[in-house]
Write a protein that binds this DNA or RNA. Sequence first.
DNA 1: ATTGCTGCAAACTCTTTGCAAGTTC
DNA 2: GAACTTGCAAAGAGTTTGCAGCAAT
Lengths: 139, 139
Amino acid sequence: METNDFIHILTEKGLKITPQRLAVLDALRRLHNHPTPDQVCRMVKSSHPHIAIGTVYKTLETFVEKGILKKVKTDGDVMRYDDVPHCHHHLYCADSQRIEDYFDDELNALLDDYFKRKQIPNFNVDEVRLHINGRFVGE
Amino acid sequence: METNDFIHILTEKGLKITPQRLAVLDALRRLHNHPTPDQVCRMVKSSHPHIAIGTVYKTLETFVEKGILKKVKTDGDVMRYDDVPHCHHHLYCADSQRIEDYFDDELNALLDDYFKRKQIPNFNVDEVRLHINGRFVGE
DNA sequence: ATTGCTGCAAACTCTTTGCAAGTTC
DNA sequence: GAACTTGCAAAGAGTTTGCAGCAAT
């Protein structure tokens, strides 16, 4: 039963348990593809028709502040959110708005090693994320 | 005399030479720090008070289409533009909106090599950009 | 002369905010 | 009951669009 997971996530961060927040968490789990607030809202509405778009925005923003979500950087004009917690990279398709996760431990190790060795003047590195631009083919 | 450079850039792309475009190119050169359309507009207005913000947006968009500029990906809500043509990465400061260029040929070679070796299923890589998140210190 | 560009203003989209009413702890 | 959360609607910010007049080739 995954509702318990959601409750755990919220209590852990000191947030109150509300049906709206649970529904947003559920929507994020189903939409696992860097959804926009609008996509989240539509998904939530299917189970919870009265939710307001403003509530979705506030909820997502709260989750970012608490570290439950991250914003995904885009060069478009809408926000997109990422619910995957551990370090990964993104594949950006030049032909569409598609953004996919890319996991690669070998690469992570390589980068980790590189930036441990190489210091950047006046800058402390927290984390490194790759934006891999290209095209999806033959699927 | 750098106006000639600007004229060359425009004619090369089949764009007409207008005072506004030259002024935008000049502003981009001076602002070399991933400016927003609004910053570009204010800079241009100092030499060219009658330019319209709409013109700046259209000009920047045209330049992106022609490959003169790139959009910088952010998780904020404003566009930012990058006038540096060759491959480089970005340092994102967690404490401010600051974004700095980061050049590192050794790193580029490493990545190039890595992705030549490692194929990503169903995806052709065009280019890889690092988003290096952290903090500027002691300046 | 033709084609393309600019300025202006209105329209649009996405996001944030204020607040009264309702929930959670 | 205190503190927080929601829904709603209005406001705000950033960006795009339509079009008449103007400028570049």
